[in-house]
Design a protein around this nucleic acid. Structure first.
Lengths: 242, 242
DNA sequence: TTCGGTTGTCTAGATTAATAGACATTTGGA
DNA sequence: TCCAAATGTCTATTAATCTAGACAACCGAA
């Protein structure tokens, strides 16, 4: 059931569980949530507490309450984002969304943080282009990423990305015909700071973090990326028989 | 900063942020947390609120307060768990922990859920062995898994696993010399139900969920697994150039 | 030994979350 | 038309969380 005195309000725990149940397709037969009184009994809480949870889901656009009728489920799908040797954002989502958009928030040339330098095999102090992006599908923000590219070779990355809205296209203009993903690390944290705002999350929401290194076909690292996905909108899939 | 009226208590938000900062190595120089008054000022809250957060971290064994001195950081590493074509639990953690242990909670033969039957390419209604396990490293629970094996071929899986404590060994006794992972799906949710207890998590904690299908060398699916990792103790790594 | 800086403990009050109950409003169907 | 079932709104009370301040206990260094 739900846990009291955990530092997480009951209404938020219930909202999280209902969001999960919806994504899981538990109410697909009717397309409606069970009545508030039923949910209150099931979770062992007051009806008002369930209403707080429902209000949060309505705020997220997941459900819509209709007086006299019940509460309708508006949206349930979680996008599938494949991770493989050839991970690319727009292609990855494929036909799961009509309108896939990349937006650049910021680009700057600066000294690479030590973690980035190490991952890219660069000497400490090397300059890199840092680029902050947000990716959306059907106007819903899906992920936020921080990319690093060696400045010597990709100094124009920011300008070109801003025009093409695609890392793949920008690489092509800069002479990299193709590239592959060398490694990906995946972890999960609570959303914080700018990510809450840019991904339109509520505090306490979960973020899937991937840290990846891409190389050109000769094996030279050309990109370090840290991408934060809204965990309630996307699942990552790894195909290991490619 | 921290968010009020979010349904997540301030002390919990602060505990989550500090756990993250510790894992990130932010305080490695001194090995001590900043004083409570400093943290209170930094987060814009009362000292008592910081103390509540600190108490939660102490409960998890991450920090240890010492009167008159300060608060010492006890542990910061997050285990690295690789996902690849040849993912095996015990080998994966390698030398990151001395004592790696698998424990069986339950084994039963039952009709496969439709999702499992589909993933394994079995007709609806086929019997499977369902097995619940917990894996620990150095006595700390790391993950909890639900496995399904086709009952016709692996009816004895439960008994053998209980003796060998290893899926790989059990497969070998049942005539599967080697096996590979076909696919892995990764998502993140809040911990709930039994998982909180078995993984010794606090409510609100994050779980990384992997859903995987393994096949024998002829490509026949032989195992469906849903594994729940404690997200603050492990990170998943995907090597795509294997 | 004294003192500054730290964690530990206590009391009190303000704010937020949850419970409880009553009744209004809306809808679809008998 | 009327009723059952659902969401919407209001008041009041209790429980949990956060703030505020004071002081005790402890440690290391001057």
């Amino acid at each position: 059931m739900v846990e009291r005195q955990s530092g997480v309000a009951l209404w938020r725990q219930i909202a999280d569980r209902m969001r999960l149940a919806i994504n899981n397709g538990d109410f697909d037969e009717t397309g409606m949530m069970p009545p508030e009184m039923t949910l209150a009994a099931r979770f062992g809480v007051n009806r008002h507490t369930v209403r707080s949870a429902m209000a949060a889901l309505a705020e997220e656009g997941i459900v819509r309450p209709i007086q006299g009728i019940g509460t309708r489920i508006e949206r349930r799908d979680r996008l599938r984002f494949p991770i493989s040797k050839r991970t690319r954002f727009s292609q990855g989502l494929g036909n799961q969304a009509r309108d896939i958009e990349g937006k650049m928030l910021e680009a700057a040339t600066e000294v690479a943080p030590s973690i980035v330098a190490e991952a890219l095999g660069l000497p400490i102090g090397t300059l890199c282009v840092r680029m902050e992006t947000v990716n959306s599908a059907d106007k819903r923000p899906i992920s936020r990423a921080t990319h690093y590219f060696p400045a010597e070779r990709f100094g124009e990355m920011g300008t070109i990305y801003d025009r093409t809205r695609s890392v793949t296209s920008a690489f092509r203009e800069l002479g990299v015909a193709d590239y592959v993903r060398r490694s990906t690390e995946i972890s999960a944290i609570h959303a914080e700071g700018d990510d809450i705002r840019h991904l339109k999350l509520s505090p306490g929401a979960i973020i899937l973090v991937t840290t990846a290194v891409n190389t050109d076909l000769s094996g030279t690292p050309i990109q370090f990326s840290r991408t934060r996905f809204a965990a309630d909108r996307v699942k990552l899939t790894v195909e290991t028989d490619v």
